Simulated assay, not measured.
Amino acid sequence: MALEIGDRAPDFSLLDTYGNSVTLSALKGKRVILYFYPRDNTPGCTKEACGFRDRYAQFQDHNTLIFGISTDDAKSHQKFVEKFELNFPLLCDVDASVATAYESYGKKQMMGKEYLGIFRNTFVIDAEGNIEKIYRLVKADLHPAQVLEDILSGG
Rank of each mutant, 00 (worst) to 15 (best):
I69P: 00
K47N: 02
Y35F: 14
V81M: 03
S21Q: 12
K30R: 14
G19Q: 02
F80P: 03
T42K: 06
C45L: 07
N41D: 15
T23N: 06
S76C: 14
E48A: 15
V32T: 13
I33H: 00
A74W: 03
Y18F: 12
L14C: 04
K75C: 09
L24F: 13
G44A: 12
N63K: 11
R39P: 04
F80S: 01
R39G: 07
F52E: 06
G44L: 14
F36S: 07
R53D: 11
D40V: 10
Q60E: 15
S13K: 15
H62C: 06
P38D: 10
A49K: 05
F52V: 10
D72F: 03
P43M: 11
R39K: 15
Q58T: 07
I33L: 09
R53A: 02
T23D: 13
T46G: 00
D11P: 03
A49E: 05
Q78E: 14
P43Q: 10
S25W: 09
K30E: 13
F12R: 10
V81W: 03
K28S: 15
V81F: 03
Q60D: 11
P38R: 05
S25E: 11
D72T: 00
T23R: 13
K30L: 06
D61R: 12
V81I: 14
Q58D: 15
S13M: 01
N41H: 12
T64G: 09
D61C: 08
L65E: 05
Q78P: 05
D11I: 14
N20D: 06
L65T: 11
L14F: 14
I33P: 00
C45P: 05
I69G: 01
V22N: 02
Y56D: 01
K75R: 14
G19E: 02
T17H: 03
C50N: 12
Q58K: 13
G68M: 09
R53W: 02
A26S: 15
F59W: 02
S70D: 12
T46S: 00
R39C: 03
F59C: 07
T64K: 01
P38A: 12
N63V: 04
V81R: 04
A57K: 12
T42F: 05
F52M: 05
H77I: 10
L34P: 08
R53Y: 13
T71F: 00
G19M: 08
A26F: 11
R53C: 04
L27C: 09
F59M: 09
A57C: 08
T17D: 06
Q60R: 14
D73R: 11
D61L: 14
F52P: 03
D11Y: 08
N63E: 08
T46C: 00
S76D: 14
F80V: 08
N20P: 00
D61F: 07
D11Q: 11
L27Y: 02
E82F: 09
R31L: 04
L27R: 04
L24I: 11
L14S: 00
T23F: 05
A26Y: 12
